[in-house]
Design a protein around this nucleic acid. Structure first.
Lengths: 219, 219
DNA sequence: GAGTTAATCTAGTATTCTATTGAATAGTAG
DNA sequence: CTACTATTCAATAGAATACTAGATTAACTC
């Protein structure tokens, strides 16, 4: 084999991974899988795709080595194929948000709360939570919370936040988090809480980044 | 705007970056640019594409925020848009080489030298080079060497290695490097040198990774 | 074995996009 | 004006895309 062919073939293989990342629906599936493993039906429901379509996207992700699956009874459960995939996904997101002008425009147009207050760094939250100085709430759906969450975090899905407001003390600061740096759930939770007089902030990024940083996780 | 639309649009934007990474020729261009900035003509020549085609690929990379360009006289000079892009490229490569079975097969079939000897870690090379214990050779083309290289490295492009063998002392260990973890130049240089009785090894990865690690670079 | 459920596979469709070449064009330099 | 570099345009041939809907397989339950 010539050196030129080798190089060509090698980059063609790398491109296969790039191709898997070239579709928004697949990226969305990856973000859900970054929260924890899920079966096809759940992924279809949460992404709004049909089961068949979801299954096909998952095949493509699998062929690119991004996800792996195992069978458990009737269900096939998918998960990310290692931390490298999370890192790749985050690297993609970072580049996009820094350099693709439309992303910034989009984020600013929707997340008007965004610039209100700096998010809480992970290290700070960890130490303050250990001292019992903050209430940490996980505003993701229960299934994602069940698959793993910050130690001591309370699961309050966004839609039930209004109902439980009275049970939350106003003395402590509240820190909310969800799926990642662009997940709207935490933004909206913080906005709602502040409207009701709470002292609330957002954790920087979300659960997958916390886990990737090697910080403690509860299950 | 609904939350659903926001999410959809956001992932669609991320997918644009993925799409830019979905073509082998573009990835090859990125690897060349990771060595240093280059104009269109040079990129076309080294990648074997026509100038027009190269230009179009570069437009796509630019639209995805991966490269930026500036004009200098007649020439338009492209470079990577920050370290994040190098990180993204490396993350893609890592995932591909770990998880795409064909990559491993490909690498093993061509780089038979591969498993011969462990590459030299960056930190080790840095300290040993400072003590003057090793000869470091850069086997990339002169233009890439000129755009930046390891401190004290001698530029010996692979094709001229045979000619200068006599000028190289046999007392010191030789460490060769080139463009990155899958660049064949360093592999072949090491193979040639060993055949002639030299004590030669390869640096882990290549120049872009050295630079990304924040280690000193000479120009 | 019959029935149920979950996921995958297959076929088909309509749409869209792809990479590429070669020529034309624009912009710069001397 | 001429030479040079890069971009753009037009055209082509081909392929790939995402998706739907229905058939099929596999695993479990009764």
């Amino acid at each position: 084999m010539s050196s030129r062919n080798f190089k060509h073939d090698l980059f063609a293989q790398f491109a296969r991974v790039g191709k898997a990342l070239s579709n928004g629906n697949r990226l969305e599936l990856l973000e859900y899988l970054a929260q924890g493993e899920r079966n096809v039906e759940e992924l279809a429901k949460v992404s709004g795709l049909t089961v068949g379509n979801t299954s096909q996207h998952l095949q493509q992700l699998r062929q690119a080595g991004l996800v792996i699956s195992r069978k458990e009874g009737l269900k096939v459960i998918y998960r990310l194929n290692g931390d490298d995939v999370t890192k790749l996904f985050n690297a993609l997101r970072t580049v996009a948000e820094h350099y693709v002008a439309d992303v910034e425009r989009l984020v600013n147009s929707y997340l008007t709360v965004k610039d209100d207050l700096e998010p809480v760094p992970r290290a700070e939250l960890l130490s303050r939570a250990r001292q019992g100085l903050v209430t940490v709430i996980d505003v993701r759906p229960p299934e994602e919370y069940a698959a793993g969450h910050l130690p001591g975090a309370v699961n309050i899905p966004l839609e039930s936040l209004e109902r439980v407001l009275d049970d939350i003390g106003t003395d402590q600061e509240i820190v909310a988090y969800c799926r990642g740096p662009h997940c709207v759930l935490a933004y909206e939770a913080v906005a709602q809480l502040r409207k009701h007089g709470f002292n609330a902030r957002r954790l920087e990024d979300g659960f997958p980044e916390w886990k990737l940083a090697g910080l403690p996780v509860e299950q």
